[in-house]
């Protein structure tokens, strides 16, 4: 099976005409990783995103208690896509789980195609947007499910099992939330933008972090 057919078989690129998928494959670098190989490292400046063609990748994030796996992604998944549109540092490390075949799409190439209004770039850009919207909705839903326990009851997922000590419970809940953020390497530098787009401008009404 060639790369184009493999990509199409993932189900993530069904809307792409053959010519566009061929173009995508030709402008990207096809890379093969052995188990444990690093695709990118947290803290480095990202210049590309990754489309998993075969195999799987794991996403890790550095937490106060050490490196924590936050997501696993299989064929058809796109990871590190923030670097395609913004100059930001990677906020997660990605490694191959088993042997993995990955297409690497560089920002330079993406920008050049977008600048030329290539239908491939427009379609890919839209795919990034929709993927982001779904991941955000999913993350919010998970957060709400974990934390919306104002009636004093434990979240549904915790009911029926013995309650772990509070500090462990906290860590567990938060780890569950991170699952919702799978595939995103985001930087806190963009936080200021959130205040502009989603909060009242009045300074006294700015929320304080808890």
């Amino acid at each position: 099976m060639n790369v184009r057919d493999a990509l199409r078989a993932t189900g993530a690129f069904v809307e792409y005409p053959d010519a566009e998928l061929d173009l995508l494959v030709s402008v990207c670098d096809l890379r093969r990783y052995a188990s444990g190989d690093e695709l990118c490292r947290e803290g480095t400046v990202g210049r590309s995103c990754y489309c998993v063609v075969a195999g799987a990748i794991d996403v890790f994030k550095t937490m106060p208690q050490g490196e924590v796996p936050i997501a696993s992604m299989g064929p058809g998944a796109i990871a590190g896509q923030v670097a395609l549109t913004q100059k930001v540092r990677r906020t997660a490390t990605i490694r191959a789980r088993g042997e993995a075949v990955v297409l690497e799409f560089s920002r330079d190439t993406f920008e050049r195609l977008l600048g030329a209004s290539s239908p491939l770039a427009l379609r890919f850009q839209r795919q990034i947007a929709v993927a982001g919207i779904r991941q955000l909705r999913d993350a919010l839903k998970r957060i709400a499910a974990v934390f919306d326990t104002d009636d004093g009851k434990a979240p549904a997922s915790a009911r029926g099992s013995a309650a772990p000590p509070p500090d462990q419970a906290k860590a567990r809940e938060v780890l569950a939330l991170l699952e919702g953020a799978k595939g995103w390497d985001l930087s806190v530098e963009t936080l200021d933008a959130v205040e502009v787009v989603s909060m009242p401008r009045h300074p006294s009404r700015r929320p304080s972090a808890y």
Binding site: L114, L136, A139, L191, V194, V197
Partner: peptide, 27 residues
């Protein structure tokens, strides 16, 4: 239209960054 979609991506990324940041702080 690519600029318009880019604008939306910017907003979504910023909101997701806020989610990640809060989660990291909570951890």
């Amino acid at each position: 239209s690519s600029r318009l979609v880019g604008w939306i991506i910017e907003l979504v990324h910023a909101r997701m960054a806020a989610v990640n940041d809060r989660v990291a702080k909570a951890l």
